[in-house]
Design a protein around this nucleic acid. Structure first.
Lengths: 249, 249
DNA sequence: CGAGGCCTTGATGCACCTCAACCGACGTGG
DNA sequence: CCACGTCGGTTGAGGTGCATCAAGGCCTCG
């Protein structure tokens, strides 16, 4: 650690370096930036926000100002129709960027709700666009992130359009597994943050069907389910279950 | 027409002005740009490409270099899995941008196939990024286009995840109707460019189900179907059919 | 005129939805 | 402390919307 005294002078690096010192640097926006560029980005990413479990990060119809990078926690996004129908469009974990949908109209088109206490970095979008003009690699990476979201959505469309219940669940679990692995957690054992109903909404199934699919996979000894605790006993067979489709991010 | 002779000298405006003189200017990338900026963009959009009906504009797995703006014609994009399963992810008409999915990995993640003879403008992506650094409104609009694609995909996910066959078809027809209207065509009468099977793939249904849904809507006098020719007799009731959901682009 | 592509329609089966009962965990208030 | 309600989950029974299989019609093109 640095000496305390140095912080009492003009050293504001502990503020400016919000991105530079972030453990998620390699997952989040700063990918591919050099030290100085990360500093510039860190200046833009001024404030952090906490969202309690069950709380809204943003709501459909509200004005768009900022993107949000997830620093800790777990959120879902969902779209809803007039008739009350609702669908979870994604589950989001650390390092991922929320709010991309709102760029098109400057209005949020979905709700973002925390599934556990979460913390996000607020990234004023106008400023991000501004600095990305002078930092090509930032612009490049931002475009990749948006494009990745499109690819992800196409994967979900494939899932919703052509897979059976069990395949969908297998695909879902493998997706989670991969993302936990990327973040340094176990790929074979984790806790779900969402309910069966939320999983069902995401996968286009009813909660009972999700529950049955869990039970079926457990009966086959492919996974072990204890409420929200999931253990994958046989990754290979799980992959076979889902038809070995293109992996969704 | 200009005199032929002028073309033999240094006048290359007929090349450079490809965007400035394009009738799709208000639908396509140049939205919101001034004359000079459109010229710069037009210089980047050098070449045009023709794709015959049934031909590929790009294939899954090939290297990504350029985005494509549709100048005329009609295309579909589809993703496929190892096991042969395949899904249409979108139908695309004039003014729309193809290839956004490929930005993420520099590899195309879907096939783009012409459903009728089509013509596209090739937009080298590296150059587009470069000039967008000096043309903020171009960058801004490009981001909006990517974001709009994400919103569109979320709409399709909602459709695939929670609608019944008839609702899906109604939603599909209304979407086409709106897009034809935006392009100056009739919103109530048009020809489908795709087969029942392709519609089914897009909507997560089998072709027989699509056919039955068409027949049902016709029996109710909401539409008139003659093979690929569709006439919408009652837009209001068609909207009710789909549950009045958020309109997909 | 025959072949093949595209579409429609009918009969049947099945995967998932719906409805319902029950269980355990948790929190609250008497 | 226990009674009670609530919430999330599991499981069963029965219904249904769509898939599947099959037959036949229309159109185009060689």
């Amino acid at each position: 650690m640095l000496s305390d005294t140095s912080l009492h002078h003009l050293d504001i690096s502990h503020i400016r370096s919000s991105c530079a010192s972030c453990s998620l640097r390699e997952l989040c926006l700063p990918v591919g930036l050099n030290e100085q560029e990360v500093q510039v980005l860190g200046d833009v990413v001024s404030s952090k926000r906490k969202v309690q479990r069950g709380g809204y990060l943003h709501r459909t119809g509200t004005k768009f100002q900022s993107l949000f990078a997830i620093r800790s926690g777990f959120l879902k996004t969902c779209v809803l129709e007039q008739d009350g129908r609702q669908q979870v469009t994604g589950f989001h974990m650390t390092g991922e960027l929320l709010g991309l949908d709102a760029i098109s109209t400057d209005i949020h088109t979905c709700d973002a709700i925390a599934l556990e206490d979460s913390e996000v970095c607020e990234i004023p979008f106008a400023k991000l666009e501004e600095i990305s003009r002078t930092i090509p690699s930032l612009m490049r990476h931002f475009h990749k992130i948006m494009s990745r979201e499109i690819v992800r959505d196409h994967g979900v469309m494939l899932l919703l359009g052509s897979m059976k219940a069990e395949e969908r669940l297998a695909s879902f679990l493998l997706n989670l597994s991969r993302r936990f692995l990327m973040r340094g957690y176990s790929e074979s054992e984790f806790n779900l943050r969402m309910t069966r109903e939320e999983i069902g909404s995401y996968l286009g199934l009813k909660l009972e069907t999700v529950s049955r699919a869990f039970s079926k996979l457990q009966d086959e000894n492919i996974i072990t389910v204890d409420n929200k605790h999931i253990q994958i006993n046989d990754l290979a067979r799980l992959k076979i279950k889902m038809g070995n489709s293109s992996c969704v991010t």
